[in-house]
Design a protein around this nucleic acid. Structure first.
Lengths: 264, 264
DNA sequence: GAACTCTGTTCGGCATAGTCGAACGCATGC
DNA sequence: GCATGCGTTCGACTATGCCGAACAGAGTTC
């Protein structure tokens, strides 16, 4: 047996999943040969896997070029994930009311690998054009949602997060592990995470963790918008902080969290 | 080899894909036993497949109940599908301009199985609350998008569509195969499909097919909104019809379609 | 236009990798 | 405290999926 995958994983299924992820990461379509090479598979093997995925419409083949890309069933399943997602479902009303209370966009995210996956997004309540971010991934260290979640993880899980490469998205992204650890520790103290132009220049975020009934962080909810409104005088706007904190607390209660949640 | 799946399909991968779809279709989470029964698998087999999918975060297991549901990687892949989707990418600008021209919501969809999968959705340009429909599936016979696409399919593909059970979503849904065939034939003549409260009471849709560079229907684009505005006097509003027709034509040209597209 | 080099695809033989079914530990409910 | 359901583990058998080499095209290049 080869060394990849975890103990007891079914080889062919594991490989099929890897193919899907490779097809999802690469921005354009890929051929059998390229996929095989990238995963260390014989061409014939990769072909068989692709054919199977294609018959399920998880993957589609370009009629002319013969190259492959993700299929429509993938979108349907992604949508089904959202429909069944407990945090998302419970956050719909809370996010709406937070957005209209503060007049800014609201995002809800969960940890996925070393990134935060946006599972809900409410537009800023004005008429500006905004792009929907549901489904997008943001490196955990470059957003307030990520730091809010990281602050309440088990030490081992947190160590895993610290081990990843801390890519810089802007000049202000925190790439120093010591400084980042300090920042996360600070979040654990007052329950609020702040991000100041660490992902996009000119944009800031204020977020707080949401807990499930076991007291574990199920995700986070936060407000995003222009720095000058979120962090007016060098520090986060107190009214926004209060609104985010109250919303996160209410949402946690909805999720079944007791009063044990580690923040005041 | 067992009888399920297509010739040459890899058994375990095929079964894994089926598990994902079962988890996606059922509204709530499911256990190993239930999944095994529904697919005719031994419990141990289903368990192995689930463990593998879990290690890839395609499925998640509830910490307390032990039941399974779709995982976050699914959402990420669904989003990746959208990013790579040619029709969606090219339709973004066209859909925006159509929406602001007619003042109604716009949808873009592709055929997936016997349903239309919404790949893009522009809200009606007013301040009302609207839910995003990207990722949703609508039975092809109950929406204008579906009829628009069906009109230009190969006879065999169209026959497949006609073979499915024509479920009634409202009292006006077309469930009679003869009438539906007539309606689709009519679409092929003037290039415009109309749906009048066949999916949701009070809502109507006007749509036209979009063609790729081979002249095949790649999908459809259409306007949705209240019947009284879309179909004011028993027939579809001429100005809306013109706007939809022009948009679909322009979008088809973007996709590389020649002037051969079968409609005037 | 022929040789060359890429594709994606097919095929058969070998042994590995996956399936099955029975048994386990643990809840929950009578 | 028995009974029944769950998710999980394990080992044996053999069906199953893997590999590598050969195939058929489409573009290139000289």
């Amino acid at each position: 047996m080869s060394t990849d995958g975890r103990r007891g994983s079914i080889q062919s299924v594991d490989r099929a999943a890897r193919i899907l992820k490779v097809l999802g990461s690469g921005t354009s379509r890929m051929g059998v040969t390229e996929i095989g090479e990238r995963l260390g598979l014989a061409k014939g093997t990769a072909y068989g896997l692709l054919r199977t995925l294609e018959s399920q419409e998880l993957v589609e083949q370009d009629a002319d070029t013969g190259k492959y890309h993700l299929g429509p069933a993938m979108l349907q399943l992604g949508n089904a994930f959202l429909d069944n997602h407990e945090l998302r479902g419970r956050s719909l009303l809370w996010a709406d009311s937070l957005a209209s209370r503060v007049g800014e966009a609201v995002r809800v995210g969960v940890l996925h690998g070393s990134s935060v996956l946006i599972v809900h997004h409410v537009f800023r309540p004005d008429n500006s054009v905004q792009i929907l971010e549901v489904g997008a991934s943001i490196p955990w260290h470059a957003c307030a949602l990520g730091k809010a979640i990281a602050a309440y993880l088990d030490p081992s899980e947190r160590a895993d997060l610290m081990d990843v490469e801390l890519v810089a998205l802007t000049g202000r992204t925190m790439t120093d592990r010591v400084a980042l650890t300090h920042a996360v520790d600070g979040v654990a103290e007052d329950g609020i995470a702040v991000e100041d132009q660490e992902a996009i220049v000119g944009e800031a975020e204020i977020a707080a963790a949401v807990f499930d009934h076991r007291g574990h962080p199920a995700g986070a909810i936060g407000v995003v918008g222009p720095v000058e409104r979120l962090i007016p005088n060098g520090g986060p706007s107190p009214s926004l902080v209060a609104a985010v904190r109250e919303t996160a607390r209410g949402l946690s209660r909805d999720m079944g969290a007791g009063r044990l949640a580690a923040r005041g």
